[in-house]
Design a protein around this nucleic acid. Sequence first.
DNA 1: GGAAGTCAAGTCTCG
DNA 2: CGAGACTTGACTTCC
Length: 298
Amino acid sequence: MGGLRVGYACVNTQLPSSARTLRLANVTPERLRKLIAANLEALEAILGWNERHGVEVFRLTSNLIPFGSHAANELLWWEEFARRFEEVGGLILRAGMRLSTHPGQCTVLSSSRPEVAAAAVAELEYHDRLLSALGLDRSHKIVLHVGSGAGDPKTAVDRFLSGFARLSPGAAGRLVLENDERWPLAPVLALAARVRLPVVFDVFHHRLAASFDGLAVRDLVLRAGDTWHRRDGRQEVHFSTQAPGKRPGAHAETLDTSEFTRFVDEVYDLPLDCVLEVKDKERSVLTAHELLRRRTCA
DNA sequence: GGAAGTCAAGTCTCG
DNA sequence: CGAGACTTGACTTCC
């Protein structure tokens, strides 16, 4: 069955944060335990809201486990909280939700600095452990940018490949690459083909750094779609628009319904999981749902 | 209580 | 050369 599913990233503006953390200087096992428990509680509430509102696509915050890939966190949190993870994961599976994560800008697998690449490997392993603790299979993805060195693509690709080779099968099996302003879709597809990774097409980043001149958005989505296989689950795409008056690349406050309608007109029949990257989060998802509902009726 | 400053990490752009 | 920006602010200090 085709059809577009729309979701959002990390934060529900009406509910408590699932990304509470503390300062490195203040880390103790007890404080970490308290925050992990609180973050899982908050995540469960957000997922409950999503379930009640028919939102099936969601991005987990990287900060669910404070210092999840840092030596300062010595907890075996995936064991200590195994029951809670199972409960929350059960909700996700019951509701047919699709989760992904998106490590931050400090996760640079292609860095020329060995310690940075090593930290990136650790971060990706943490994300895999998190999704696995929830009982989610490899269709629940970790979405990563290629990283540094777009000016010198050849060596950057080599560094990326050697970083990728250091990942566990679990983390490698979840990895997905996303085009951005430095790495347009064409070079990302070329790199992804070498390691057989799926590719997330980000419409906004594509507008800022276009490749494949002349191809319609639908064609680009289809090209990215060729990289997704059955075991990877539904193809993920990202949608956002330029914040008016802000620097190029700044994400808009809310969904631009006319641009989104144009996007939907091109891809509504494809089986896509679309993450909206807008500041008002779940509210724009409801707007998108309404828009899609009317479209179906019309 | 509220405002301002600071926080694990990288990299690039702009002023 | 420092600040700001990036998928997501949240914590701590100071008044």
